[in-house]
Design a protein around this nucleic acid. Structure first.
Lengths: 231, 231
DNA sequence: AAGTGGTCTAGACCACGTG
DNA sequence: ACGTGGTCTAGACCACTTT
């Protein structure tokens, strides 16, 4: 029954010509309109959410999902440029930036000694005013002292390249589906346990020196990764 | 409440020392044990499912999720070898193989003319007897006639390389989270709408000739993609 | 044949977002 | 202040799996 309802909802959305980011009526209204219980309706909505057709924003209601953003994590032209090239409007918020001591897990991954200073940035990125991801950057301050005083609402890599002449030569990227919980879920205004995509990237320069470690927590329906590989 | 229950379940699993692929008790038993409703229990279970802690197999019950498989889609050493290297037991089932006419969507992606013959393989891959993915391969028969008569329960790329001297020179990979529906969901014994990861790969040889197009539908909790990128 | 997971009903309360 | 989504109750039936 909820799968039939799912289909009726899809048809209804198409009929009403709802498009990207448009809001659906309240659940009780929809349940009445489609002659069903709220529970069953919510199951149909959850189905469409899983398929990426609609999304919800924390107690605010249900909306039609925009098209996925294409994203190549092996490039470093910067998020904002990427988004613009695809005809969307980007925005980045720097939530926090500080100089911290290298934690042990980062030490293992980067080779930095524990408690060595390292820059830590937390940023939230939007596309068309929908928050799509939370990004954590850990940057080796060697060679880019003063980075923290600059405006980090654009591409970090652009700053590193243009201001400090730092370029990544090799990158190791890890990607897997992971539920959004705790901080990431809160900052993205989604429920704990919402489907998400986790992306991690570690970059070294041509001398094998650690440059940057990066975590990204994306909404599950927000992006399409595109990678070109040779050889 | 269901988040507290989630935590109690985690603790209980740890206490009982349940490990990879072990079965949890029936939902009604758990609901009684933890003094709650089946509905609330199921919400806690769904939370743990989203986090990849447990998984369910079609009306059979809940099980503890094994570790993720690491997987580099830019390599072509073959699934079976990959899995073995990580200490697991692989298995591949060829569900269907046939020579079909190139459909229009594939024509656009590959450059093959519509209705030109192309090999189509559908395979199901297991790790430790858990079905993790459904794979569709479309192979350009030029240069590998007779491929369909060979055993395709191992690496296709190994066959192409060893039997036909075909090697990919460039690959374009697309990856995104996508709910498992219809055939893929059925073949993997999961409910329609279960979280999954979609992976698509198109390979050309050094002359730019189309070699192979590949779709993969993975369980969301089954893999960790690892890609190394230079430059 | 029994038990199980999947689904559904018809309510209810609460905390949060919005006006 | 109101309406909303998020959560919960205490049942029930069915189809499928397992015994």
């Amino acid at each position: 029954m909820y799968l039939q309802l799912r289909q009726r909802l899809v048809d209804w959305i198409k009929e009403k010509n709802l498009s990207s980011q448009d809001k659906l009526p309240a659940e009780r209204v929809l349940a009445t309109k489609f002659c069903t219980t709220r529970v069953t309706l919510r199951q149909a909505l959850a189905q469409l959410e899983a398929e990426g057709v609609i999304f919800r924003s924390n107690r605010r209601g249900w909306y039609v999902t925009p098209d996925r953003l294409s994203y190549d994590p092996s490039k470093d032209i910067g998020f904002n440029l990427y988004v613009q090239q695809q005809g969307f409007t980007p925005r980045t918020e720097t939530i926090s930036k500080q100089l911290i001591g290298t934690p042990s897990w980062l030490s293992e991954k980067s080779g930095l000694l524990v408690d060595t200073p390292v820059y830590h940035f937390v940023r939230r990125r939007y596309v068309d005013e929908r928050a799509l991801l939370i990004e954590h950057n850990y940057v080796n301050p060697q060679g880019c002292g003063g980075l923290m005083q600059l405006n980090t609402d654009d591409s970090l890599w652009q700053l590193l390249r243009d201001e400090f002449n730092l370029k990544p030569a090799s990158r190791k990227i890890e990607i897997y589906p992971q539920a959004l919980v705790d901080n990431s879920a809160e900052l993205l205004s989604v429920n704990t346990g919402s489907a998400g995509l986790y992306l991690q990237r570690i970059s070294h320069d041509e001398d094998g020196r650690f440059l940057e470690f990066d975590h990204e927590y994306w909404l599950h329906d927000a992006l399409k990764l595109v990678v070109n590989v040779d050889g």
